[in-house]
Design a protein around this nucleic acid. Structure first.
Lengths: 329, 329
DNA sequence: TTGTAAGCGTTATCAC
DNA sequence: GTGATAACGCTTACAA
């Protein structure tokens, strides 16, 4: 690979001059600029970001930490982040934490070791020391904490919405699936749902689950119907689990939504391709990713940031796993 | 952040000594080692990877280029890659190419600028100059080309399998969905299917599609039944499209698999959660990702590499969108 | 066994 | 306008 020195030689100038044309600062005569640019072209030179980073103590790298990209909700967040970042030439060092504290710390450490200028994280513990001690901006995505910059969706309201829509559509014996307690959005949803159900006086049961994994989803679904065989409405902890419940309901010969209604969470792309298509609570994942990236870049570039905590509202997407209502309320 | 110099001061030794204990090379007295380690601990020091990378012209970073992580097949590849790499402390700079040549080149360039030691790419054009010109090892994943190192699945055989199983189960008027022509595995599947269908003399039609996107999948499905309303078997180009076809079939009142059989490709996690669950051609995506990472690391570490091209075999997963056969053949 | 110093490819300061 | 040169944090000859 050609270095700035090679370019300088080729153009018959000093490295300082080359650096000036590269960074478009300082004076440089039009003729020399042309010579330099020509040399750059000839040598197909492009600057070594590592050397830059070392000197400036700043890179064009950003660390992204997600729980598990294998859960279809996260790729959308990731794409939003990436697309927005890419517009400003930032690149991503990416890692999955699997909700493991250790992995999370390891990744954060290598982010720092590689001079990343900012971090976007969907951690379960935004208040952990690792984050507090960071000297670079951090934006929490799909998570929130006190007044740290964060972008997230209103899970609690999502839970309320789900419960309200179920009740409105006549479910009388609802089962609320409670996601992992350590995952904040999961708890928010759960609490929101319970809040409304109590308020409305609708009887309900709770099924605790401890993961969102595909493999376990089927297990939760079976467990659900084993424990509550005559539930007529399920508020699932996310769309994956909802899909498993839907499938299990069919296996048991129940009609959806006639015998049992189901609502999911997230609105992952596949939920509309199910049959019946899945009613769910929509979160604008892609947009949230973009927003987090935008916020982070503002923080990095030091401009004054107005709203450091951005809450997106969620939306009930009526599809076919819930019944129709022809009145309003 | 503390530097090696701080550690040296704190321990009352030179930076060279610190470096020696860090890298466990050269002689260092047990007592000094202890002093240094103590200083490291006290200062919570961890070496600057950027400086290392600059000096050694080698980082612990690897570039991963995937078409679109939003397609549920790719996260599995990505996880395989990441998990394997992580065992050896390599980290990932990650990008989505969207099958765009420009984006691809941009990413490859920044990979190089950041001193990555290797690249894993699912490009549509492994023979492009960008790759040929790279001075670092490249492994093609889910793709292959001549004798460049690659890890991929036998798409052609997948296509044959799909066709054979459809025919065996009695579909008489098959529609083969042809994926994007620029995507090699898609073409392989297609050709494999056509090969067998011709061989067997089963009449078939072809529906050309140009993407794997969720949003367009529904369009292809509608188009399929518009053009070939009485097809009784669909070989879809992947599971996403297959799901859309399944849904559309229901909408049109067709019974699956009685009236029409459907086979997908990839075996993404959600395919088994559909109802009826989707029969499909399984590719060991996670394993392939791991393998690609392992191969790349061998290449990086310069050890002799035996089989540079690794083809995985695929497998027909019989689920509920195909009929049962109680004889064999 | 340990220290000194050169060098990795940049940028920025300061002369000229 | 342009060119030396120090500095960024590390590793590795080479000396001691």
């Amino acid at each position: 690979m050609a270095t700035i020195k090679d370019v300088a030689n080729q153009a018959g100038v000093s490295v300082a001059t080359v650096s000036r044309v590269l960074n478009e600062n300082g004076y440089v005569h039009e003729d020399t600029r042309r010579k330099v640019e020509e040399a750059i072209r000839q040598l197909n030179y492009s600057p070594n970001e590592v050397a830059r980073s070392l000197y400036k103590k700043k890179s064009k790298l950003i660390g992204l930490l997600l729980p598990d990209i294998t859960n279809p909700y996260f790729p959308q967040l990731a794409r939003g982040v990436e697309d927005r970042l890419q517009e400003n030439e930032y690149r991503l060092i990416f890692g999955n934490s699997d909700e493991s504290r250790q992995k999370e710390m390891d990744y954060i450490q290598t982010f720092v070791q590689n001079n990343v200028v900012g971090v976007i994280s969907s951690t379960n513990d935004p208040d952990a020391d690792i984050y507090a001690g960071l000297k670079i901006p951090v934006v929490f995505l799909d998570r929130t904490s006190n007044d740290s910059p964060s972008v997230y969706a209103d899970g609690r309201e999502g839970g309320r919405l789900a419960a309200r829509e179920m009740a409105k559509r006549g479910s009388k014996r609802i089962t609320v699936m409670q996601g992992p307690v350590s995952v904040r959005p999961a708890m928010d949803r759960f609490e929101g749902a319970v809040e409304v159900l109590k308020e409305l006086g609708v009887p309900f049961d709770v099924l605790k689950t401890t993961s969102f994994s595909f493999t376990e989803a089927e297990g939760w679904a079976k467990e659900l119907f084993r424990q509550y065989p005559d539930t007529d409405g399920v508020i699932a902890s996310n769309d994956i689990v909802a899909s498993a419940v839907l499938q299990e309901a069919f296996r048991l010969g129940k009609r959806v939504p006639e015998d049992i209604q189901i609502v999911g969470f997230d609105d992952i792309p596949l939920s509309r391709l199910l049959t019946p298509s899945l009613s769910t609570i929509h979160q604008p994942a892609y947009e949230m990713g973009r927003e987090a990236a935008g916020l982070l870049m503002q923080l990095i570039e030091g401009s004054h940031v107005e709203h450091k905590i951005i809450q997106y509202s969620v939306q009930f997407i009526e599809r076919q796993t819930t019944r129709k209502v022809d009145y309003d309320g």
